[in-house]
Design a binder for these strands. Structure first.
Lengths: 131, 131
DNA sequence: AGGGTACTTTACCTTTACGTAAAGGTAAAG
DNA sequence: CTTTACCTTTACGTAAAGGTAAAGTACCCT
């Protein structure tokens, strides 16, 4: 048995191009076996790709994702992996929290500017109409 | 009279490198006069730079900033400029609002994952201790 | 043999906002 | 005259995550 997949299968399933999957391989995130020069993906490759996609969705860089999922193989207990992942989660949370604050501040500024501009514009328009 | 500034003056004042200021010139955002081959900045250049910095802080691209401040020169009534700026503000607000939502969703996911990982980790640690 | 399809590698292109050298001009100060 | 400081241009490098083209391999179908 041992289900396998072609590159196209995975590309379709995850909604990415084959180029993307090869790119991940270049970055050391995937390592499918070869049959001749074709890539054959085993279920564990598929799982890794799924983890990659999830990591991306959460905003992690490919490098960070690599750090984490590599532990999946080298750490049988996965304690180290979980620790690292929790750490990464905390970091990411902190970054996002800052971003939320920054965005809120900027939105505030935008609103202020909008009010000023609107008022100024009304004046200009009245002035133009009254001229 | 007619205050002028050297590139270094403006760089210091706005906390950027001279490279940055030259870069803005390359992009058509600034056009200081030359004295020999040196750049001489007039007050209006300084104002433009200030507007550029504000635009950047608000998250506009240099290209957008260029569109807006160029109207400052070509549009004496500035009505068109105000309209464009208001439009850009609205766009930017919309983008930021989306980002806020996305970030909130991701933070939610991170929290869920964190809880799962923490629990799993505690189990693993207990298992290791009890072994 | 020809056609079609999927796959492969290599390698340059894209975007944004600069950083970073390389190599030299200009001018005041010592 | 030389050092020092500041300025200039030109041009390649960076990060991230792929896009895209070129050119070749491999196999099935008829």
């Amino acid at each position: 048995m041992a289900e396998t997949y072609g590159i196209r299968d995975l590309a379709r399933e995850f909604g990415v191009t084959t180029r993307t999957i090869r790119f991940y391989e270049d970055k050391g995130l995937l390592a499918p076996v070869r049959q001749g020069q074709r890539r054959i993906y085993a279920p564990r490759d598929r799982v890794r790709l799924k983890l990659i996609m999830r990591g991306k969705r959460l905003g992690f860089s490919l490098e960070e994702i690599g750090e984490i999922i590599d532990l999946y193989d080298t750490d049988p207990t996965q304690v180290a992996q979980l620790r690292l992942f929790l750490e990464k989660i905390a970091e990411r949370r902190a970054v996002l929290a800052r971003q939320q604050k920054d965005i809120a501040a900027i939105v505030g500024e935008l609103d202020t500017l909008k009010a000023q501009c609107s008022q100024l514009l009304r004046r200009k328009e009245r002035a133009a109409a009254g001229a």
